[in-house]
Design a protein around this nucleic acid. Structure first.
Length: 423
RNA sequence: GGACAGAUGGCCGAGCGGUUUAAGGCACCGGUCUUGAAAACCGGCAAGGGGGAAACCCCUUCGCGAGUUCGAAUCUCGCUCUGUCCGCCA
């Protein structure tokens, strides 16, 4: 959500920002509706003031015995006008809100401008992709051959785009979650949070999934939503509250299943664990002073990268262009891991600075002695567990189809050093 | 799921139709006093929004939403949440 005052002060800058997102100019509509709303509000408040005054006079007349018939007549006519104006004001507020709630965040100045992912900028490439003297298999072929990744049963039970993991690969997934959470809590000071996987519409609105992207998530029969990411419950921890400045930065991490309808993804990544309706993700969320956003984004991205470094996986960091950024983001780094079978990098993390955009939607505030306002929020994957498991399987595969367990995971795997057909 | 009780400012808590512009206390901030501290005393102390160059004025908010009324924290209806007990249950 944007600050209407800011738009009023510099409509051109706002329209330019929307243009960089390939969206039409809307500032003039917003300014008009807002001006009308404030005019109505101002008049309404004058009437309310008079109404309160009359009520006071009548109240005090009970003691003085003064005649109040004239006052009551005036109050009655005021009453009708007030309810009329109240309705008008509510309509205008609603209209303004409707427009504002589907406008995305404004990209930061250093975000490359472009139509889509083709304009993304590679910031750095870290690690070297492994070289194989045999054609590397895809993770789903490796897993199925080992009998540890079972798409057939998953389809029987839940339909397409689900995965069942068995034995050592299920353990690998669990090991990855614990490893990631440990790194973030011990090395980066994130507090581990165990969150609800169902959330209210208010939460989905707060982080920006609603009202525009309802078709991307699953809704329950009683009106709740399956979380598409634990960013939603984590960020909404501060919804409708004022956090003391001294408590910032807040850093929270959670591991949760994530549910996505993947509407419109037909035909893409149909095989494997890359694009499922349900996947596990370790999420990072920070709530910081608005001036500390960029600094925190670098820190958060670094925390996510640390996981890949420790796992010995090659990756690159991409700065997303205006055309590829999410709704609530004003700057986003994607981390892409090397996937040998596809001979390319695939997204495994997305770290976004949302500035004050979500805080405004959530009405989350911070307050210090002489400084108060909306904090900046950030969220990032640290990392998508299923995709990390796939990357480990592929990057550490041997010619016989076995998979070496990365050193850092061995303690989390009860000492298992290699995955093989014996599960 | 059933029964009962409750929801008031950062916290506790009074108020149950108009001298309440939400009493009082705690916490916090400033001052007096003190060598310093404590105590005591004095003063200050919610958020959001509208108007204004400013001083300042005004509106809204007593869980949320409707309603009754000239006037609602207070009355009516609906909802949400919390507590206690019962039932069910991992």
């Amino acid at each position: 959500m944007h600050d209407v005052k800011r738009i009023r002060e510099n409509p051109q800058a706002f329209d330019d920002a929307m243009a960089s997102r390939n969206l039409p100019a809307v500032s003039s509509v917003i300014i008009d509706v807002d001006a009308e709303r404030r005019e109505v509000l101002s008049e309404l408040q004058k009437m309310q003031s008079r109404r309160n005054e009359i009520a006071g006079l009548i109240g005090r007349s009970a003691h003085s015995g003064a005649d109040v018939a004239e006052l009551e007549r005036e109050a009655l006519s005021l009453k009708a006008n007030i309810s009329l104006l109240e309705k008008k004001e509510a309509d205008l507020s609603g209209k303004l809100n409707e427009i504002m709630s589907i406008i995305p965040n404004i990209p930061r100045p250093d975000v490359p401008i472009g139509p889509d992912e083709s304009a993304n900028k590679c910031v750095r490439v870290v690690g070297k992709p492994p070289e194989f003297d045999f054609p590397p298999k895809a993770h789903y072929d490796l897993g199925e051959a080992m009998g540890t990744v079972d798409f057939r049963s998953a389809a029987k039970i839940a339909g397409s785009r689900f995965t069942i993991l068995r034995g050592k690969v299920a353990l690998l997934e669990r090991a990855l979650k614990n490893f990631m959470l440990d790194v973030h809590t011990r090395e980066f000071g994130y507090e581990e949070i165990s969150v609800p996987f169902l959330v209210s519409s208010e939460c989905m609105y707060g982080t920006g999934q609603l009202p525009k992207f309802s078709e991307d998530s699953f809704q329950t029969t009683d009106g709740r939503w399956l979380i598409p990411t634990s960013e939603v419950p984590l960020s909404n921890m501060v919804r409708d509250m004022t956090v003391p400045l001294s408590k910032l930065p807040l850093r929270m991490t959670a591991c949760s299943p994530c549910f996505r309808s993947e509407a419109g993804a037909a035909g893409r990544d149909n095989r494997g664990m890359i694009r499922n309706h349900q996947f596990h993700k370790v999420e990072l969320v920070s709530v910081v002073h608005p001036d500390k956003g960029e600094e925190e984004l670098e820190r958060m991205t670094g925390a996510a990268e640390t996981i890949l470094k420790k796992l010995g996986l090659a990756y690159r960091v991409m700065l997303l262009s205006t055309g590829d950024m999410g709704f609530s983001a004003e700057k986003t780094y994607d981390i892409e891991v090397w996937i040998p079978s596809e001979n390319t990098y695939r997204e495994i993390s997305s770290c976004s600075l949302c500035g004050q955009f979500q805080a405004r939607r959530m009405s989350a505030r911070y307050k210090g002695d002489s400084d108060k306002g909306f904090p900046a929020t950030l969220n990032g994957s640290g990392l998508a567990v299923g995709r990390t498991a796939a990357a480990v399987l592929e990057n550490y595969q041997l010619v016989n189809g076995n998979v070496i367990v990365p050193e850092v995971l061995i303690p989390y795997m009860n000492g298992t050093k290699e995955l093989d057909k014996n599960g």
